[in-house]
């Protein structure tokens, strides 16, 4: 009995150590980013790397807000990420419901096609998509970027939601239909309330992916008025000189929105992810 308890304690100790290591692994870059954003240039370029800023300064943040259109970048990223999230939820939900519940020819092919579409790397797609956007006159617009981001967010969201919808007992929906609900009514009144964790995961995924996306934003957007945070960061590199202070300040601030969203929806997201493990 004592031996079992000792083994359990040892395993717990190993587990905790591993968790602590992973925590350090995850948090150190974040800490380094914040510390660098609070240092003066002289300290950033100093011979010794300092863990704690010697003379903390907010000058990099001041420069960010006073001399660059960073707020505009933040606004653009927000518009695009929120727009993509809402559209992904709407299209993903409708698509997933159709694939999970309706019977029509080609259903399986479409379902598999979703996975394949998601797997095509953006590096292959950005030139054809750029041509499409040019034709539609959507280059350099928020709408164009939202439409582009749907190309990777909708397939994933549909696929994920499909698994959840299948797990909702059919009888519940049939009962709603017998009571006079339409298909859309049963989706909104029965299935969606039961799939809130999945919707939280999908929303979080769509938001984070579109917030962090770089390649499409870089190619499809030219003007400052539509530029997102990720592409704005590259303007802190001029030729072979890196302006680390403002770049780190901008990186820190741009990491906050996904973090806040995650903290708000944390409970649902964790639940949604674990449910997905057995229902997907």
């Amino acid at each position: 009995m004592r031996s079992v308890s000792r083994t359990r304690r040892s395993l717990q100790w190993v587990g905790n150590t591993l968790l602590a290591l992973m925590l350090v692994w995850t948090l150190v870059p974040f800490y380094w980013m914040i510390a660098t954003s609070l240092k003066k240039d002289r300290e950033i370029y100093g011979f010794e790397a300092t863990l704690i800023p010697h003379q903390p300064t907010l000058a990099n943040y001041a420069r960010l807000f006073a001399k660059t259109p960073f707020i505009l970048y933040l606004r653009n990223s927000t518009i695009i990420a929120v727009g993509t999230t809402i559209a992904s939820l709407v299209f993903g939900t409708l698509g997933a419901y159709a694939l999970a519940r309706l019977r029509f020819p080609g259903r399986k092919v479409i379902a598999r096609g979703l996975v394949f579409t998601y797997l095509v790397p953006p590096a292959l797609l950005f030139i054809p998509l750029f041509a499409v956007m040019s034709t539609l006159r959507l280059v350099d617009t928020h709408q164009g970027l939202i439409l582009t981001y749907l190309s990777f967010s909708v397939p994933f969201c549909t696929w994920l939601l499909m698994g959840y919808f299948r797990s909702v007992p059919l009888e519940l929906e049939e009962a709603a239909l017998v009571d006079g609900c339409t298909r859309l009514g049963s989706l909104v009144r029965v299935i969606l309330p039961m799939s809130l964790p999945a919707l939280a995961v999908v929303a979080f995924f769509a938001f984070t992916q579109s917030w962090n996306e770089f390649l499409y934003a870089n190619v499809f957007v030219n003007s400052v008025e539509v530029r997102t945070v990720t592409t704005g960061l590259t303007l802190f590199i001029v030729e072979d000189v890196f302006f680390w202070g403002p770049m780190m300040a901008a990186s820190f601030l741009s990491a906050l929105p996904p973090l806040v969203i995650y903290l708000i929806f944390q409970r649902w997201v964790v639940k949604g992810l674990t449910l997905g493990a057995v229902k997907g």
């Binding site: 950005f126 030139i127 750029f130 041509a131 040019s134 280059v139 870089n218 190619v219 030219n222 003007s223 400052v224 592409t231 590259t234 303007l235 590199i237 001029v238 030729e239």
Partner: peptide
Amino acid sequence: DVVANEQAQAKLAAAIEAGN
């Protein structure tokens, strides 16, 4: 348009390929 130095060549290559 302001194009970051680091990304200028990739962006130009894409724009040329797309005829724009």
